[in-house]
Write a protein that binds this DNA or RNA. Structure first.
Ligand SMILES: [Mn+2]
Ligand SMILES: [Mn+2]
Ligand SMILES: [Zn+2]
Ligand SMILES: [Zn+2]
Lengths: 144, 144
DNA sequence: TCGCCTGATGATAGTGATTCTCACTCTCGT
DNA sequence: ACGAGAGTGAGAATCACTATCATCAGGCGA
């Protein structure tokens, strides 16, 4: 692990949002990425569409879905668990979890993680843990 | 908090699956509950429908959704987070988490839980934690 | 026992989100 | 300029529900 710059060949970086290698940064995608960059809280594909089409009228909803999926592949956005099913949040790379405010919808990242250790899961259940999802719900500092 | 038996007036218990108080245990609901009791892994409303209608032809999909919602209210089933969007698992009452096998779909419960402490979240982020969701993904003992 | 009242049900239409299809466009390399 | 292939938008299609509503069932009091 020498440098820490771009991880793969030619990933496109736009406002910190990474697209997979050798995908073109089109005006339509730029509009979607701008819409995401403006968000502090979770969003849906449809809500992005409504914002992004203001910059790029004629933008198709299909392109929004396609772009979100590309970002999900690189980890730049992640689906949010919990009751609100089809919502995403912008994410930094690396292992972390989310503090989701039930009042305002804001999502904060935390590196705190006390998930059961793979060793103990293996010993007690014979279960080989490969990953986990942990979201904490509550009230953020601004809303408290 | 005196006794710990039935929590409310007349909750119906069928195969360990609880319906809310004063809901009738009809043949249709029985068919859905049987279908759930037979599952070791996650299920969708549609997959329950396909099984339950064998015992009760003429069963309507709406009744399946209604019954699953009733069980969700008592905590007998819970929606599963993760990639498989509209899936549920049968659940025991009380705080626990899930070990989801990516190979066979089986879901095991564990009381192990190392979620960040509310006190630390409060101190570091001013965040008032009210609850959390934690699912672990990997390979179960049978599939390993 | 009989008729009511209300919970429960199934057919059906409707809805909103997401995916599919496909003809067309745009870019990039040559 | 040209050809290949990525990218796009419109609209159809699919999917997972949800709402509506006429009807049914069954516990119960008169
Ligand atoms: Mn994140
Ligand atoms: Mn459970
Ligand atoms: Zn908040
Ligand atoms: Zn397994």
């Amino acid at each position: 692990m020498a440098g820490k710059g771009r991880a793969l060949p030619t990933e496109t970086d736009y406002r910190g949002l990474l697209l997979p290698a050798s995908t073109r940064l089109t005006p339509q995608r730029r509009a979607v990425l701008d819409a995401i960059a403006a968000r502090r809280s979770s969003f849906t594909a449809v809500s992005l569409f409504q914002v992004a089409r203001r910059r790029n009228p004629g933008l198709g909803i299909a392109t929004v879905y396609r772009t979100v999926e590309l970002l999900r592949q690189t980890g730049s956005v992640r689906p949010l668990t919990g009751d609100a099913r089809p919502a995403y949040v912008r994410c930094e790379p690396g292992h972390h979890h989310h503090l989701v405010c039930l009042a305002c919808g804001a999502v904060e990242e935390t590196e705190l993680c006390g998930a059961p250790s793979p060793a103990e899961l293996r010993r007690r259940y014979g279960f080989r843990a490969e990953g986990h999802e942990l979201d904490v719900y509550g009230t953020c500092a601004r809303c408290a």
